[in-house]
């Protein structure tokens, strides 16, 4: 019986967190129009989450594209269809790897930073101090970070994907000798606007999910050193799992 009760309790607490997070998102969305007026704060956060993630995103994108081309070449060469390498690499990057890998990197690089920053502000009672000065920490601290993440994510995905295709070209065309003309023309013949849209749509959804989880975990963290640490860990785990689940759902819906 106690197992059942524990299961029920954890399910109830899961529902509570889910509901709390949904209400949190609703509040953020309601504050968004006025939050965008304080543009400088948002720009600062786009810099923190986006510009500072550039290097890791670009290096990862390059190598993901390169390994994709290497594996793809090996596989396609068995069917004598190396010419399809451009299509295979571009579709995989645009539709799946770009958004998903970027979201996972984003959780590790920017999500943890957001969660621990907000959590530490809470632990050191900076948020309470703001409330005492009649400054709403939701609007002053949480909202700009959330918006910064939401804006940065699609741009990061686009950069990751473009660099990835460059990496695939580097390995496929320059190293393995696939014909450059068919590499690009096959890609252009087979990639349509729908696929680009799928990638951009995914990146927007993942951006909202990853940023929401990060700021939520930070804001709801226990105000202790241990609590902040747990919030950071939970951010990465929750983001990874929810991004992968969302990815499946979006793919199934758009296919």
């Amino acid at each position: 019986m106690s197992v059942l009760r524990e299961l029920g309790e954890s399910f109830v607490s899961f529902l509570r967190i889910l509901g709390d997070m949904a209400l949190f998102l609703l509040r953020l969305v309601m504050y968004t129009p006025r939050g965008l007026l304080r543009f400088r704060l948002v720009v600062h956060q786009v810099h923190n989450t986006g510009a500072l993630s550039l290097v890791i995103i670009m290096i990862s994108g390059l190598f993901v594209g390169m390994v994709l081309a290497l594996q793809g070449f090996d596989l396609l060469a068995r069917f004598n269809s190396e010419d399809a390498l451009g299509t295979a690499a571009a579709l995989a990057l645009i539709k799946e790897l770009g958004p998903v890998v970027t979201a996972l990197l984003f959780a590790g690089r920017a999500g943890t930073a957001l969660a621990s920053e907000i959590g530490l502000m809470k632990a050191t009672e900076q948020l309470s101090a703001m409330e005492m000065m009649a400054v709403d920490p939701m609007r002053r601290v949480v909202l700009p970070r959330f918006l910064g993440g939401v804006i940065a994510m699609p741009l990061l995905v686009a950069i990751f994907t473009a660099i990835g295709i460059f990496g695939a070209w580097l390995v496929g065309v320059v190293m393995m000798g696939v014909d450059a003309g068919s590499f690009w023309s096959q890609m252009q013949a087979n990639v349509s606007g729908d696929e680009i849209f799928e990638g951009v749509f995914k990146s927007v959804v993942f951006g909202i999910a990853a940023s929401l989880i990060a700021v939520y975990e930070g804001y709801r963290a226990w105000p202790t050193a241990e609590g902040v640490g747990r919030a950071t860990t939970r951010t990465v785990v929750l983001t990874a799992v929810s991004v992968l689940i969302l990815d499946y759902m979006i793919t199934a819906a758009l296919l």
Partner: peptide
Amino acid sequence: TVELGTGLFVFLGVVALFFLTTQTTGFS
């Protein structure tokens, strides 16, 4: 430096998006 970095980031992002929509798709 913050503005410069953000500007560079947004510029790169838009260039990448432009590349994806025009260069990887046919018949745009």
